[in-house]
């Protein structure tokens, strides 16, 4: 039984980092542009399909496809920002509704291009590692490591570079940051694009493990938003931890309680957190 639980915890951690990377995008976009981009899940889907197409159809090496998929997702993010989201800055409701419209558009495009049939990528990295009684596939470990590195680098960049400090300053006090010479428009576009690129890398790695369908984004954006709120919106390192906690809650919950309610455990947890710690698990005073 211990092994089963440990295996589930490991699985939960890996799925949790995928939630975490979306949560990071949600938190960053919210802090800088004042909206929640619900279409981030669809940018993840764009990244996933791009990686699948480049590897399985165009026969490029997988690491190169991942890099290109991130670029494609970032470019799509740039276009969506110029065409739509630049008009919904700091308008939460409009941003929400525009991103919901965008979800329909991107999903239909994916359905037209790739149909609803799930796509499975050929194994890029087969085999698994055995550690005692637990077996875990190599691809999952690599995915976990890459996502962890991306999140850690983002965090380091925000802590140590001028741009990172400018971003945090702007999130804290936009007027003061502007007076100190932070270029608002560029920062907002940059964060918008970066969030989409983050979702893209999540998707590209997801493609190496699970099968793809055009509707995959909806689940991940919900979990991403849940994770971001769990941690406290605006908390960057917390986004990752929030994602992992959510992933573990779900996999352990599914083990002891009915599996059909798998998605419910995270929601119950989330409501409880919002009620008793409105600023999130790691949030201070708001």
């Amino acid at each position: 039984m211990t092994q089963v639980i440990l295996g589930q915890v490991l699985n939960g951690i890996i799925v949790g980092t995928l939630y975490g990377i979306i949560a990071l995008g949600v938190t960053l976009t919210f802090g800088i542009t004042g909206i929640v981009n619900f279409a981030l899940g669809q940018f993840m889907m764009i990244g996933a399909y791009a990686a699948w197409h480049l590897t399985d159809v165009a026969h490029l090496p997988y690491p190169l496809s991942v890099a290109l998929a991130v670029l494609i997702a970032g470019l799509a993010g740039f276009l969506s920002d110029r065409a739509l989201f630049q008009f919904t800055r700091n308008n939460l409701v409009n941003g929400l509704l525009v991103s919901i419209g965008l979800i329909s558009v991107i999903e239909s495009a994916a359905l037209l291009l790739y149909t609803a049939t799930p796509k499975n990528m050929d194994f890029v990295l087969s085999g698994s590692w055995t550690l005692g009684a637990i077996t875990i596939s190599r691809m999952k470990v690599v995915t976990f490591a890459v996502l962890l590195a991306v999140i850690a680098l983002t965090w380091l960049a925000l802590a140590n570079t001028w741009l990172g400090r400018a971003t945090r300053a702007y999130a804290q006090n936009p007027e003061a940051a502007m007076l100190m010479g932070v270029k608002t428009e560029m920062l907002q576009v940059g964060v918008s694009v970066y969030s989409c690129a983050l979702a893209g890398i999540g998707g590209a790695l997801y493609a190496g493990i699970y099968s793809l369908e055009p509707s995959m984004g909806a689940l991940f954006i919900l979990k991403g938003v849940e994770a971001a709120i769990l941690a406290g919106v605006g908390n960057l390192a917390g986004a990752l931890v929030g994602g992992i906690i959510l992933g573990i809650t779900e996999s352990i919950g599914a083990l002891f309680l009915p599996t059909a309610f798998r998605d419910a455990y995270g929601l119950v947890f989330l409501v409880a957190i919002l009620l008793f710690r409105p600023s999130g698990l790691f949030g201070g005073q708001k």
């Binding site: 509704l97 919901i100 419209g101 329909s104 558009v105 999903e107 239909s108």
Partner: peptide, 13 residues
Amino acid sequence: AATYGAILILVIL
């Protein structure tokens, strides 16, 4: 679905 999304976006903006 795409038209529906596009209408929604255009109306809001």
